[in-house]
Design a protein around this nucleic acid. Structure first.
Lengths: 246, 246
DNA sequence: CGCGGCTTTGATGTTCATCAAGTAAAGTGG
DNA sequence: CCACTTTACTTGATGAACATCAAAGCCGCG
């Protein structure tokens, strides 16, 4: 893997390269429903101010502590939100999916990002100057209303996931995130885990060794199949039972 | 303690009794800064539509699953946000403090409360019809902007607390919430714990027995003094060290 | 080739939940 | 008012769940 410096350079190049995207916001099929309230004029403004950022997997898009200048919309791919704890280890807060506004929680309340945002799959982001969004909040009440709704949903999802995870023990947590990836993210029984075993641990608060141990256990019990990063759910009812009970 | 029915009755009576409060929103010294953007006209509207709800400790103000109709502002006192997990045990999500909009996270995204809100100290709430707030969001951009900020702060605080707690073991969690009560809530070394040992456990995900054990341990080590619900922090540096390290 | 990062398994010790049992405080009914 | 139940609190003992340590294989990269 390339160094942080290289990655940032490549990021910058790609940004320039794809800045004048073929698509504009008016016609965009991936546009968030939040923008449904915008007039043609406003959508035009959005288009003019936006950048399309295309990144491969494994790139830091915004770093904890960086100034918040932009509104970042995930068009395609997957990203993780993470932070570094005081004692220095990484904690993954959640996984952002297509049509999520990553960093939305920091956006209106903090001058800097509270969390680091990095891609865990090849991804595309729409980047809009925060001032443009702020202006639309001020001028378009329906848009403001919808943004409040969206933020509320995001916060609720992050918090609920956290609460659900805390109240389970390790087997239950592993089952929970396998099902999360399968149902919420990939809508398929078979998928490629976009994160390492270590990152799974960072996401659900457990040690790598136990992540691996329990995955192996599930494999031996015929609940899932694993080959490297590829996972197939074989016995979903059983997995759900483990998620719920123990 | 009185039955649930009695409590609801008393709640209703108090509501009527104090409905026409001496204070109106225009002159209210406890008004949230979120409302600073409102015109005199708008503040008048707020006053007309509002109820003052005065409740003793231990009353359910809104229940998980109830329809969200109102905007609830905590003027004085303390409230807990809690939910019931699938396997039936109570989980406390956070503590609401004066000037918090309790239930703000459910407000714009859900027709029903996701969490139960109940007083843990004698409290006063301002209750405003949600429609009034919604109208102001639509018509007053600055207000919308400030509400986004407030929501963002609330979400961030709840989530951060949760993350901080997960990454600690039991001693660290106990130290964390003692300091939270002392610094963030009471601004004093000595205070009365507004919640039971069991509720502390529900808040920081541990068993009552261990809550008690560790509190006793802290007492024996001369870090705190406890007498019933009264807590005094004797050795703050040590408590902070335990909070940080483990 | 060798180094570092990711993965895997086993052995060991610590942390924590659970069980059991007893005290104190507080409400309940006669 | 007193016996009665209930609820919160407390301590100790035990075993299960989990972190930690150790060691080895694998792979990509300089």
């Amino acid at each position: 893997m390339s160094s942080a410096l290289d990655r940032e350079k490549s990021c910058f190049e790609k940004q320039k390269q794809t800045q004048c995207s073929l698509e504009n916001c008016v016609e965009c099929g991936l546009r968030s429903s939040v923008f449904s309230s915008l007039s043609h004029l406003e959508l035009g403004e959005l288009s003019d101010g936006k950048d399309l950022l295309v990144e491969p997997r494994g790139v830091v898009v915004a770093k904890q502590g960086d100034a918040v200048k932009n509104f970042i919309f995930l068009r395609k791919g997957l990203a993780k939100l993470s932070r570094r704890t005081e004692d220095g280890h990484e904690q993954i807060i959640g996984i952002a999916r297509p049509r999520d506004f990553v960093g939305l929680l920091s956006l209106f309340s903090s001058p800097v990002y509270q969390y680091t945002i990095s891609t865990i799959e090849d991804s595309e982001f729409c980047i809009v100057d925060f001032k443009v969004i702020e202006k639309m909040v001020m001028e378009n009440g329906v848009f403001a209303r919808q943004l409040l709704e969206k933020m509320s949903l995001v916060a609720d999802r992050l918090l609920s996931t956290r609460l659900e995870l805390n109240s389970r023990q390790l087997r239950g947590r592993i089952a929970y995130i396998i099902i999360m990836f399968s149902v919420d993210i990939y809508q398929s029984d078979t998928f490629n885990l976009p994160i390492s075993r270590k990152e799974i641990g960072d996401l659900i608060d457990m040690r790598v060794e136990n992540v691996i141990r329990i995955l192996s256990e599930f494999r031996k019990d015929g609940i899932i199949k694993i080959e490297g990063t590829q996972i197939e759910i074989v016995n979903l009812p059983m997995l759900e039972r483990i998620m719920q009970h123990g």
